[in-house]
Amino acid sequence: MNIFRLVADLMHLGSILILLLKMFTSRSCAGISFKTQALYLIVFVTRYLDLFTHFVSVYNTFMKIFFISSAGYILYMMRVPLKDTYNKHLDAFRWEFLLGGAGVLALVFTHKYTVIETLWTYSIFLEMMAILPQLLQLQRTGEAETITTHYLFALGAYRALYIVNWIYRYETEHHVDAISTMAGIVQTALYCDFFYVYFTRVLKGKRFKLP
């Protein structure tokens, strides 16, 4: 564990708390992609199967359980109490391609052909693209509530800090995981346009609005 990864994980945890806060305070899930949230649940479940086989630390176990359970709870919120505020027509990304594409990439690139290992690789490639339905929705509406942009910023910052963590690990441990690193760089790059608008507008007190 290093400081970059710790802060990254706390940003990730914080992003989820911001999303829950948005849902609780506005009693609405408007602007949030159900597909992206569902993809995150699949990502966490397929990646954290090692909860049952491989103990890392109390911190690691706690975070894994938090990510799986909060993702499940968010889906429940969107499907049951806040169902009427969900706009299906804006959440139009063809996510079958993401589910299938990540499957092909996992079968090609996995380190080992075991079920747990292949599902771990699947989760990495699925997470790489899981934000796309959310970004498409943002593009379609052209604007977003400020709290939703804070959620996305925290999520993007978590990904960006993981890259710093890998550089640090490479320098100190001479250790690099090609799959995580390549997928992580692609995933972070997807946030570039969002970051630009966030820094130039939201942080200056203006509304998030695409040009």
């Binding site: 990864r5 994980d9 990730h12 090692d50 491989h54 890392v56 690691n60 975070m63 894994k64 990510f67 380190h111 771990w120 993981y162 963590n165 890998w166 690990r169 441990e173 001479h174 250790h175 995981d177 090609a178 995580s180």
Partner: peptide, 10 residues
């Protein structure tokens, strides 16, 4: 650390 994986990461 000869593992190619980062399985201690979240």
């Amino acid at each position: 650390n000869d593992s190619p994986k980062n399985h201690d990461e979240l």
